[in-house]
């Protein structure tokens, strides 16, 4: 059985907000090590992977691996019933048909329990090879969100060009063109490591969806290589991450 307690529901709210616009449903795999979820969006253009280590939780007990098929909209609705600073305990039995979420206010003046039905989902797990990327950028997550938002006014397609000179985001559409260049520096705290320059185009609406994870982390990491999907990683303190993978657009 699984029993996992977080001292604040806020983290779970942020995680579900970061997932629910890219995937409607997903299977949360629970083990002694913690929680993991991996799922592609319906169009098979992007993939999201969540990892939360057991030590993220105030209490974590999982004596047998259990998979929870979750409808994320429904989970989001349940989480709306809780205050951000309520403690939350997630419970599931072995081979569960439902999970229980219990919320406790500070001092346990108010407790609320919700049962959520689980789904039987087909699990397509992708094998992602662990190769090094040729470009690695770290920047404030709010800046990345701003760039994605501003660029999407111009075109659906956003080009990222990374070289030793810096990283350049550009879009060209009916309105005109937009170019944003970021250079490595300490004021905004941008770091850029480039082994080989990369230029790739991506669908802006997916990047904008990834930025729903902005409240989870102050910094975001971008990993690029020619002919490979982009990896956008939001660390969750020292406990894990949300990673988004996005297939590039290619010229015919």
């Amino acid at each position: 059985m699984l029993e996992a307690r977080l001292s604040q529901t806020l983290l779970l709210k942020k995680v579900v907000d970061a997932l629910k616009e890219i995937i409607a449903q997903g299977t949360l795999d629970c083990s002694d090590n913690g929680l993991e979820l991996q799922s592609m969006d319906n169009s098979h253009v992007s993939l999201v992977a969540l990892s939360l280590a057991s030590d993220c939780f105030e209490k974590f007990h999982c004596d047998r691996n259990v998979s929870l098929g979750l409808d994320l909209k429904s989970l989001g609705k349940v989480l709306k019933c809780a205050n951000s600073d309520d403690a939350v305990t997630i419970k599931a039995v072995d081979r569960p048909e439902k999970i229980t979420l219990s919320f406790e206010s500070d001092g346990k003046e108010r407790t609320a329990d919700y049962e959520l039905k689980l789904l039987n989902l087909d699990q397509d797990h992708m094998e992602i090879p662990k190769k090094d990327y040729t470009c690695y950028i770290q920047l404030p997550s709010s800046e990345f969100a701003r760039i994605c938002r501003d660029m999407s006014m111009f075109d659906e397609s956003l080009t990222i060009a990374c070289s030793s000179k810096g990283i350049r985001f550009s879009a060209k559409g009916d309105l005109g063109t937009a170019n944003i260049q970021l250079n490595a520096g300490t004021a905004m705290d941008v770091s850029i490591e480039v082994q080989e320059p990369v230029t790739q185009s991506f669908a802006g609406r997916y990047l904008n969806t990834f930025t729903k994870a902005t409240p989870l982390a102050d910094r975001v990491k971008l990993y690029l290589s020619e002919e490979r999907p982009l990896l956008v990683e939001y660390p969750i303190e020292d406990y894990g991450h949300i990673r988004y993978y996005l297939a590039p657009k290619v010229n015919e």
């Binding site: 397509d124 992708m126 999907p229 297939a247 657009k249």
Partner: peptide, 14 residues
């Protein structure tokens, strides 16, 4: 115009 590639072009299902 560039076409959107599929993620399964890069990664395989296990």
């Amino acid at each position: 115009t560039p076409i959107q590639n599929d993620l399964t072009e890069y990664y395989s299902l296990v």
